[in-house]
């Protein structure tokens, strides 16, 4: 298992390198640059800026310089937020996004399998249909619709919870609900399907044929088998939840990392975009690895050595 882990970590380096390379050049192919906004600038000022940030070098040199700096942990200065390093911006935004994402993930992992199992156990009943419709709802309603509605209804109209902002735990509730909704829905549907299959399987029949109590049959034998596909989905889900949601952070006005990504892209803040790309890539790789390791814990048939 250790060998496997080391090999996976080593194997992740080229993956991240490819992501960084693609992001770097795609960013440069896009027209415009960080200093092209508003009024045209004095050519000498522009030349000075270009020299300061190294834009007067050929692109391939800029790319190599960026890689060398990145390897040393330096993600460069932000072009737009003067006097701030990219590492500082990410350092302040990432904890916010991770807290939100972590709580949303927890909610999804608790609620999704519960709803899915309930639907599977009462297949074709009212509760099954209810769960299925809520799940369909959660998957189809995009969060740029769901989040403003939640904020409007519970924040503005009913006034039960703060409509937006950051600082109080009550301000976390609506964003977490909005963020976890599609994940709850997808996990519930995954669990339902896997659970129905598990309940029909031979070993569940064996458990029933040996007079084991219903809760043992369902929780111990069916649910654990049904959780395997869910575990596979958790890797990408965790990565996308923890690296911040552009929409949710914008709607609820939260100082997370997701907003910087959008702002950075719009402003052609090359280093900031690159910085967030690197963080997201590392998270995706990391969580997929963690899920694969979790898999071998959940399923004794999976062995990596």
């Amino acid at each position: 298992m250790l060998v496997y882990t080391i090999r996976r970590v080593v194997g992740a380096i080229p993956t991240i390198l490819i992501v960084v390379t693609l992001a770097f050049f795609m960013m440069r192919i896009a027209p415009g640059g960080p200093f092209d906004r508003g009024r045209p600038m004095d050519p000498t000022v522009l030349a000075n800026l270009d020299a300061t940030f190294g834009f007067d070098e050929p692109l391939w040199r800029q790319y190599l310089i960026y890689l060398v700096n990145l390897a040393q942990g330096d993600m460069g200065p932000s072009f737009i937020y003067r006097d701030q390093r990219v590492a500082e911006i990410i350092g302040s935004g990432l904890p916010v996004s991770m807290l939100l994402g972590g709580l949303a993930l927890t909610l999804a992992v608790l609620l999704g399998p519960t709803l899915g199992s309930l639907a599977a156990l009462r297949q074709n009943s009212i509760s099954d249909y209810a769960v299925s419709s809520v799940a369909t709802f959660g998957i189809t309603i995009p969060n740029f619709v769901a989040a403003p509605i939640l904020s409007l209804v519970f924040g503005v109209m009913l006034g039960w919870l703060p409509a937006q902002g950051w600082g109080d735990w009550r301000q976390l509730i609506l964003p977490i609900v909005a963020l976890s909704l599609p994940f709850v829905a997808i996990i519930a549907r995954l669990t339902r399907g896997a659970m129905i299959e598990a309940l029909r399987s031979d070993h569940v029949r064996t458990a029933r044929a040996y007079g084991l109590p219903a809760h043992t049959v369902v929780l111990k034998h069916a649910l654990r088998a049904a959780f395997l596909p869910v575990a596979g989905y958790l890797g990408p889900a965790a990565a996308s939840l923890l690296t911040g949601s552009i929409v949710i952070e914008q709607v609820f006005n939260l100082p997370g990392i997701g907003r910087h990504f959008v702002q950075g892209a719009i402003n052609r803040d090359y280093t900031l975009v690159m910085g967030t790309v690197v963080v997201i890539a590392v998270f995706v790789v990391l969580f997929n690895l963690m899920v694969d390791l979790l898999y071998s814990v959940l399923d004794p048939r999976v062995r990596y050595d």
Binding site: T206, A209, H221, R301
Partner: peptide
């Protein structure tokens, strides 16, 4: 009453 089934491959839970 105890039962023995046909498929020895799937009649036992692979996870336990």
């Amino acid at each position: 009453i105890a039962m023995i089934f046909q498929e020895p491959m799937t009649s036992l839970d692979p996870l336990y």
